[in-house]
Write a protein that binds this DNA or RNA. Structure first.
Lengths: 206, 206
DNA sequence: GGTAGTTTGTAACTTCCTGATACAAGCGGT
DNA sequence: ACCGCTTGTATCAGGAAGTTACAAACTACC
C-alpha cells in the first residue's frame, strides 16, 4: 500500500492525538485549533488545513469535539482498534510501563511480559504473569504480537531484537541505549529522552 | 540570543547525537554519513550539508570521528557541560530513570529526587537520597536545577509544574499524561511513547 | 609509488512543504 | 437580530529538503 500521508502530516497528526488524549483525560470535551496550537507549536491554520484534507470534523464558532477527532485521526492513521505488544524486562522500567495507562489509552494492549531471570518468571504484575523468554516465539504466534518493547539492558537488546525479527515482529520500541541492527523492513524506534531534552534546552538557551 | 538553527537542523543534529552516542557505546570510533543515514532515515547528503555548515569535521575516505563529532554537535547546540535535573516521584519510573545512564550520557546529572510519601523520603536510590517535596525551592536554588522531570501521577503534575515555575525552572519533562498549563516562557516536553508507536505503525502498515 | 575505492565537502537545480494573509460561511450566545 | 468566535479554504511567497554531480582527500592494496 502506498503512503498517502507525508512524514510531516503523519507526525503532526500524532502530536494532535497526544494533546487530544491528554485534554480528554483532563475532562475537556471540545477544543479549538487555537488551543491545540498552543500545546503543539503548530500554526492553527496548518492544523485546520491538515484536518480539512480528510473531512469537516469541526464546528464553526465552537471547535472540534475531542472524542470525534481522536476517532477520526486514528482512522486516518489506520491505527484504530487494538494492537498487541510484548514487553521484555520486568525491572523498574518494565513494571512502570505495564502499570501505566500510557499505551492502553492509544489502543495498545500489553499482552505478554518476558524476563530471563527465574526469580521474576511467574511474578504477577497487574493482570499479567511474567513468562520465560523462551516462550517468545509461541506467544508472538498465539497472541498476535505486532510490537516488541525492550525494557532491558543494552547488552541483551540485540539478541531479543533478532529473536523478535525471527518470529515475524516488524516494529521494535527500544528503551535501551543499544544501537540495533535489523533488516530494512523492520522499524526500530529508540527512546532517548535526554536527546529530546537537549533539543528543548537549545531553544530555551536561544 | 537569537536562534541560529532552524527547527529542522536542530532536530536532525539531536538525532545524529543520539545515534553517535549509541554507536560510541557499541565500541565504534568512527562513522560515515551513510551509516548515520541508515539509522536516522536522513539523506547522507543532508547530513554532510548540516555538518559542513559549522566546520569540516570529517575525514575524506574515512568518515567522522565519533568523539569529535559528539563534542562538536554539543557545542553547536550550546549544550556542552553539565546540566542539573530534579526528578519527581520515586516509584518504578523514577527509579528506572535514576538508575539508567540515559541522561548521564548526555551531560545531565540527576541532582535531586523528590517524593511526598513519608515512607519514600530518606530512601537511598543509587547515590541519591529521596528528599521531601517541600524542599523543592531550596534545592532548585542550591543545586542550580535547570530541568524538572515529572515521574508522578497525572493528578499531581500540575501542582509540581506550578511550583517548579515559581522556583524559576523553565524546562519541564513530563512523563505523566497530564496536560500542563505553564507560562509561555516555560517549555514542557511530554513523553508519549504510545503516540510515537502509532506513528511508526502507520508507516509500517503503509 | 601508483592506482582503485571510499567518503567528504560543496554546488546547482527542482520540488513542495510551511507560514502568512485573507475572508466567507456557520455556530452560539446575548 | 446581531455580534463574536472558529472553521474551512484559497492564494502567494519563502525556504527547506531531496537529487544529482563532482572534485578533493584519505586508505589500502598491489
Amino acid at each position: 500500500m502506498a503512503d498517502q500521508l507525508t512524514l510531516g502530516v503523519a507526525a503532526r497528526l500524532s502530536r494532535y492525538l497526544q494533546v487530544l488524549t491528554q485534554a480528554k483525560r483532563m475532562g475537556k470535551t471540545s477544543i479549538s485549533s487555537q488551543a491545540i496550537s498552543e500545546y503543539t507549536n503548530v500554526n492553527p491554520t496548518q492544523i485546520r488545513r491538515d484536518l480539512s484534507g480528510f473531512g469537516k470534523f469541526g464546528k464553526r464558532g465552537v471547535g472540534y469535539d475531542i472524542d470525534t477527532l481522536i476517532a477520526q485521526i486514528r482512522k486516518i492513521l489506520r491505527t484504530s482498534g487494538q494492537h498487541n505488544i510484548a514487553l521484555f524486562g520486568s525491572g523498574n522500567l518494565g513494571q512502570a510501563i505495564a502499570g501505566s495507562g500510557a499505551f492502553a489509552d492509544h489502543g495498545f494492549r500489553v499482552s505478554a511480559m518476558f524476563d530471563v531471570d527465574p526469580d521474576k518468571v511467574g511474578l504477577r504484575i497487574g493482570d499479567l504473569t511474567v513468562r520465560h523468554y523462551s516462550e517468545l516465539p509461541i506467544v508472538v504466534e498465539n497472541e498476535g504480537i505486532e510490537v516488541g518493547v525492550l525494557a532491558i539492558p543494552a547488552a541483551a537488546a540485540q539478541q531479543v531484537a533478532d529473536d523478535l525479527v525471527s518470529s515475524g515482529v516488524k516494529i521494535i520500541f527500544n528503551y535501551s541505549d543499544a544501537l540495533l541492527s535489523v533488516p530494512s523492513d523492520v522499524t526500530v524506534h529508540t527512546s532517548s529522552p535526554a536527546v529530546e531534552l537537549l533539543y528543548a534546552l537549545y531553544f530555551y538557551l536561544s
